[in-house]
Amino acid sequence: MLEATENDTAITEPVDKAQLARLAITVQNATTSFDDFNYAKALEVTESFFWNFTDDYVELVKERAYGAQGDAKAESAKATLAVTLKTLLGLFAPFMPFVTEEVWSWWQVGSVHRSTWPTSDTLEALSKGQDPKLLDDLAVAISGIRKAKSDANVSMRAKLSQATITAPSEVLDRLQLAAEDIKAAGCITQLLLESGAQVNVTAVLAPD
């Protein structure tokens, strides 16, 4: 079981900083919606972030968080997970007061309803200017890997001896920052990044 690590200085990995950059945008949009009394919009932007967080980010960093890439990179993932969870509990609290209070009590003191409202400035500082587009690129790459496995009628945990991601150079530059996370999430032995006009993923299953 992972232990929450509330150590902001531990956040060093590009994927983690991109996650917090995207979270900063979410907090800003949700806060603006609350200020405008548009509660439905506040919930919508929070839920959209939440599903991307659980579907893509958690899967990407899971192996790293358990130490597959060393202690420092594990701490970066765990610290980012802690910041994200704490922020999401604050954003969801007005809509799910009892559930968020219960989850908050598992690892925080006091009440989520008396905690400080999340601020985008704090999250932007933690992101250190990382481009959140990295998360969009990773979502496309991971989706392509999942599709390749689905088309082959194998488990999502099936090992690939090789995967090739073809994409424009600016996308490849961002994906290179997360190459080890992609390999871990896709159970890939060799990952190739090749230049091309459009994003495309091909995969070779590892022999049984």
Rank of each mutant, 00 (worst) to 15 (best):
G186R: 07
D173W: 02
N200S: 13
L175C: 05
S195D: 14
V171F: 01
K159G: 09
S161Y: 09
G196E: 11
E194D: 09
E180D: 15
L177R: 03
L191Q: 05
S195N: 11
Q162F: 01
G186N: 03
T166I: 03
T166C: 02
I188G: 09
Q190H: 15
E180H: 11
S169A: 15
E194R: 06
Q162N: 12
A167M: 03
G196S: 04
A185P: 01
A197P: 00
A158Y: 00
L192K: 11
Q190M: 08
C187N: 12
Q162R: 13
A197E: 15
E180R: 07
A197Q: 03
S169N: 12
V199A: 02
V199P: 00
N200H: 09
I165N: 00
P168M: 08
Q198G: 01
S161V: 10
D181T: 06
L191P: 13
A184H: 14
T189E: 09
V199C: 02
A163L: 07
A167R: 02
I188S: 14
Q190S: 13
P168V: 10
A163H: 02
T166K: 11
Q176T: 15
Q162P: 09
L177D: 09
S161P: 00
A184S: 13
Q162V: 09
R174Y: 09
Q162W: 00
I188W: 06
Q162Y: 00
L191E: 01
G186W: 04
Q190W: 02
K159L: 01
E170M: 01
L172A: 14
A178G: 13
T166A: 03
C187M: 05
V199E: 02
L193G: 12
Q190L: 13
A167L: 10
A163P: 07
L192P: 00
A185C: 09
T189N: 12
D181G: 01
A158Q: 11
Q176R: 14
L193T: 11
S161I: 14
L172S: 10
S161E: 15
Q190I: 13
R157P: 00
A185H: 04
A178D: 11
A158N: 03
N200L: 10
D181K: 04
P168D: 11
Q162A: 12
K159I: 08
A185V: 10
I188T: 13
Q198T: 10
S169V: 14
S195C: 10
S161G: 06
L160I: 04
I165G: 04
L177G: 05
D173P: 00
G196W: 12
I165M: 03
E194K: 12
K159F: 07
K183R: 11
E170A: 06
S195A: 13
N200K: 14
R174P: 00
L172M: 05
G196F: 06
D173R: 02
